[in-house]
């Protein structure tokens, strides 16, 4: 059976790769936070990464699945930010198909992407986390921008189902999980900051999410992450559902670290589960 070796939560601000490269005042901090996650990711030496994210109206528009999984052999991106270096990323399509079969058997209607182009939510974090390595992904997409969306408990349960699928897989692969998203953020909407086109409408919610993550109390987080709360936290704040699905794949436990950028309403966190002694990936 495949083994889950670690879980990692990151933001996907599309400007971060450019800021890192061009000496933005926050560039060093961004490099440090992503670098800390990258170090933990390297230490668990994954063969495959289950990647939870939410499409930003790039892949899905005329038809919007609540949950879907990519089974193509690979995909390129980003489709939406030419400022981020374009790359082709391999997909662990055989494992992805096994996950899909298992999830559907568990009554999750997980749609199938046979061809796709990644957006910045995948490519921007991997710019930092996997700058020079290609580890096959199992990309899982959770609809978070266009209501109605799945409940937090449904996403947590989806995580349980995907964990079952991974642990039932006829494979000895080491599987890491990455979730990509923010906790409180408004993009272009009426709750933007006075001098910006974005905002953090509910900084107290960001603090509460971080508090519950530090406590390792995933179930309490699920109960508090109501649709109303996610809506109050901003028009992109349901990206937390990606983290919640990831948390559904591991046992409740505090992370090794969390670093938060409150001005963006997001955090970087790592739950290393089975690091190798030499940390070699």
């Amino acid at each position: 059976m495949a083994k889950i070796v670690g879980a990692f939560g990151v933001p996907h601000n599309p400007h971060f790769p450019t800021w890192s490269q061009e000496g933005h005042p926050l560039g060093a901090e961004i490099d440090r936070f992503y670098g800390a996650v990258a170090e933990q990711l390297r230490a668990v030496a994954p063969d495959v990464i289950v990647y939870f994210t939410s499409d930003h109206y790039n892949m899905f528009f005329e038809s919007v699945p609540i949950f879907s999984i990519a089974v193509a052999p690979s995909a390129s991106g980003p489709s939406d930010y030419p400022t981020i270096a374009r790359r082709e990323l391999p997909i662990a399509s055989e494992l992805a198909r096994a996950v899909q079969r298992h999830a559907i058997a568990r009554e999750f209607d997980l749609g199938m992407l046979q061809e796709l182009e990644f957006d910045h939510t995948v490519v921007a974090p991997l710019h930092f986390l996997l700058p020079d390595r290609e580890i096959p992904l199992v990309p899982v997409f959770i609809s978070a921008f266009l209501r109605p969306i799945a409940s937090a408990s449904r996403c947590y349960a989806l995580g349980h189902a995907i964990r079952e699928a991974i642990e039932a897989a006829d494979s000895s692969q080491r599987v890491a999980i990455i979730a990509s998203g923010s906790f409180s953020v408004e993009i272009g909407g009426p709750r933007l900051a006075p001098d910006s086109h974005v905002g953090v409408p509910d900084p107290a919610w960001t603090e509460r999410v971080v508090e519950l993550l530090w406590a390792g109390d995933f179930e309490q987080l699920v109960s508090e992450a109501t649709d109303e709360q996610l809506g109050e936290a901003g028009n992109a704040a349901a990206e937390l559902l990606d983290w919640i699905a990831m948390l559904g794949m591991i046992d409740q436990a505090p992370p090794a670290f969390i670093e938060t950028q409150p001005q963006f309403g997001h955090s970087f966190a790592a739950w290393p589960i089975d690091p190798l002694e030499d940390g070699a990936a």
Binding site: Y57, E186, I187, G188, G189, P190, L192, S196, H197, N235
Partner: peptide, 27 residues
Amino acid sequence: CNYFLLHQLGRWEVLGMTLKLHGERVR
């Protein structure tokens, strides 16, 4: 209309829009 999608006019600077203008007009 969807604010996230509306902000793309400013991000891509079409129709005379900018992100700064977007924020000003929404406010």
